[in-house]
Design a protein around this nucleic acid. Structure first.
Lengths: 211, 211
DNA sequence: GTCTATAACGAGATAGAC
DNA sequence: GTCTATCTCGTTATAGAC
């Protein structure tokens, strides 16, 4: 419910472009994550922010540009979150747990992963969005593969295939678990499935591997 | 490219309602599976079939009814395919393989699972479609759970949790693998991931469990 | 059953005043 | 930067002729 006009601003002062753009992106992001790129309009954002559609076009000239900006910001936030996980210097198992928690926070808010949602609509997206989408998944898989490889080297993980392959399985399983969980309006379904996806990676001897 | 007018029909004869409805559903299905429910229109179908939009409304009065009919037909076809697998009387491992092959045929055609696609758009769907969507996943999971339980009883499978839980993991992983694979325009990504999802279910002692 | 014609509306987008 | 006003187009859907 964030508005373009920031509370506490001097009477009559306008929002800066950056503030308005952020507010627009916030609303648009929520809309895409719940309804999809083809399931929302400038009108939806305008109503939510209490401005006109024309104002939105000042900040994002076209819906395609808005869409690309959405992925860029989401991607950057994700990379920052991954960097934070890395900075904590925890063991691979803990890093994987925290990665899953990123997804859990998304579905907890009744949302789907932004890029998981866009992946479904892939065929209808402008080319710049498709490129960014692909890159988001590539970066995710690469980070996951690194963590998985480190975990196996440390003897904490016991998956059989190449780290990159297992990374693809994990990423797909998490995205799919979100997708299905939303059809049941039940975030717990995601949590239960995610727990098993982690267990499939962890070594058989570990306390978490079975049951 | 199937048309409403069946080739070989006597000159001047019209298509029967059932034939036209089937042709409409065929095109609509392909459109939803590639572009999503919010990504196609009656105009798309009309052009493809060489008829007018008004004709389509004769067979499916509203888009919501068309959508429900789509899920009903897809669900029935899926159930029939599962019955065929069951009728073959193969071992659980073979049944699971054949289940995955159903998904593989879908993505081989450049499509996403109809219900996986609709799951993304869940929040924008009419209530009757949401109900049907949920039911499709329930039936899938129940069938999978039965196969998984039989496999474990037979000593072929070695997953640790309740069959229903593992069924949810498998279903989610397959749907997610399709989703991501489509973003890469690469069906092989699905196949590789699906192979590992199966391996996660199969016993450690089996030749397919590792590498 | 399929057509033409059109209603009724919402979409993305732009011009120009303030 | 945000507004009013408007344009153009595509959408779902209906009426009525053939």
């Amino acid at each position: 419910m964030r508005k373009a006009i920031r509370p506490g601003r001097p009477r009559g002062a306008r929002a800066t472009p950056a503030e308005s753009a952020t507010a627009i992106l916030d609303v648009a992001e929520q809309l895409v994550q719940t309804r999809g790129y083809n399931g929302f309009s400038y009108a939806n954002i305008a109503v939510e922010l209490g401005v006109t559609k024309a104002s939105l076009h000042y900040h994002f000239a076209s819906k395609a540009l808005l869409g690309s900006a959405l992925i860029d910001r989401y991607h950057a936030a994700f990379v920052a979150a991954l960097a934070e996980i890395d900075a904590a210097g925890a063991r691979p198992a803990e890093r994987l747990e925290r990665y899953v928690r990123l997804y859990d926070q998304v579905i907890r808010n009744g949302r789907m992963c932004l890029c998981g949602m866009l992946a479904a609509e892939h065929a209808t997206l402008p080319a710049p969005m498709r490129t960014r989408l692909r890159r988001f998944f590539e970066v995710n898989e690469r980070w996951l593969a690194t963590v998985l490889e480190a975990g196996r080297d440390a003897g904490d993980f016991a998956f059989g295939e190449r780290p990159g392959e297992r990374a693809a399985v994990v990423l797909g399983a998490l995205e799919g678990a979100m997708l299905v969980a939303r059809s049941f309006d039940d975030p717990r379904r995601f949590r239960i499935a995610a727990r098993r996806v982690i267990a499939d990676v962890v070594s058989v001897g570990s306390p978490r591997a079975r049951h």
